Computed example of a mutant assay.
Amino acid sequence: MDEPWSRVTEPGTLEDLVSDALDAGYEIKERTVHDWVARGLLDSPKRHGKGRGSRPGVYAIEQRKLFLLLLSKREEMPRLPALALVPLGIWLGWGEEYVPVRQIRRAMRTWLGDGRRRLEVCQEAGKGVLGQLDHPMASDTARNRVVRLFAEVSYSGRMTPLQRVELEEAAQAVFEPKTVFGASGLIRAEGPAQAPFTVEMFMARMTGLSAAMEAVRQDKVTEDMLRRARRVYRESKEHYFAIRPALEAQTTGRMAQMFAETSAETEINDCGKDLLGAIGLLLTAPASAPVHRM
């Protein structure tokens, strides 16, 4: 398959980027490039001099290649929030040599939009969570409440104290229905011993995710925090990949799919959510974040 970015060997101007696109079969206007820079899909060009006589800005080799990669991905990921996952994935995988962290701050805001996702997407995510929490003795009313509350929190990008109480009560009603667990006082834990799924774990993750979404939306995530979040992400992934086969072997039923092997495409599609989780961990439980050096 032709990879036009492989032919890029030097930095280029805006005019070069438009020419690259045409050579690759894409008709692009200059304003599209400017918009992608503003949204964090591309980094700003390096400027030389000031005033009228200054030379045009120059995009780094890696950015010129990224531009062509984005154009090729745009057909399958036409919406800018989804397209923002491309620079996020490259940065998480290969670092600032390819995508600078200042660009990632903008890309994260683009991926989240204004902090609000389409309600139907959030409802589908809520149904996925329900599949992990569900107990056969839970009521349909409790199940519907979990999906509704999860969607509300995800849609708004924040979780109020009242929402937290309501969501925890709803999750408990589904995961540990009183008709089964009320008298015993037992706490239900599903999955392997190394990574048990409990209501407490679910709420800790939701608290972290909502805090991270709010911080990104309000532009409170600094470059230093992003670098630390990347370290957390990479260390967590390295550890998970090492133990994943054992986790999958120890888990049965519907929980087993949580530890199934994933494709590279899935990793890219999940990288925004995973980075958000790392940011949330640093914001709400920094002592739990990995501290080992890469």
Rank of each mutant, 00 (worst) to 15 (best):
G40S: 10
K220Y: 04
L226Q: 07
T32K: 11
G115A: 10
E152W: 11
M159C: 10
M206Q: 06
T284Q: 03
E27F: 13
R244F: 07
G185P: 01
S236I: 06
Q163P: 07
A278K: 04
L85T: 09
I104V: 15
G157D: 06
G51F: 04
G51V: 09
M294A: 14
P78T: 03
L282G: 00
S288D: 15
I90T: 05
G208W: 03
P56V: 06
E267Q: 04
E168M: 11
E267T: 04
T32Y: 11
A249W: 02
T284I: 01
S236H: 01
G93V: 00
D43L: 08
P192Y: 01
E62N: 07
I268K: 00
T160N: 00
A287K: 10
R105T: 15
Q63H: 04
Q132R: 11
Q63Y: 03
A260H: 10
G277W: 00
Y59T: 03
P4A: 05
N144D: 13
G191F: 05
G126I: 06
Q103W: 02
E190K: 15
A193H: 06
L119K: 10
A249V: 04
K46I: 13
V232N: 00
E97S: 13
V58H: 05
L112E: 11
V153I: 12
R109Q: 11
V58F: 00
V33C: 05
M294V: 10
D140I: 05
D43V: 09
A242P: 08
E248H: 11
G113Q: 13
R164N: 15
R145Q: 06
R188G: 01
A211E: 07
S139P: 01
A246M: 14
R143F: 02
R55V: 01
L22W: 14
I28N: 06
W111A: 12
P4S: 12
Q218G: 01
S156G: 12
A38G: 11
M206V: 15
H292F: 02
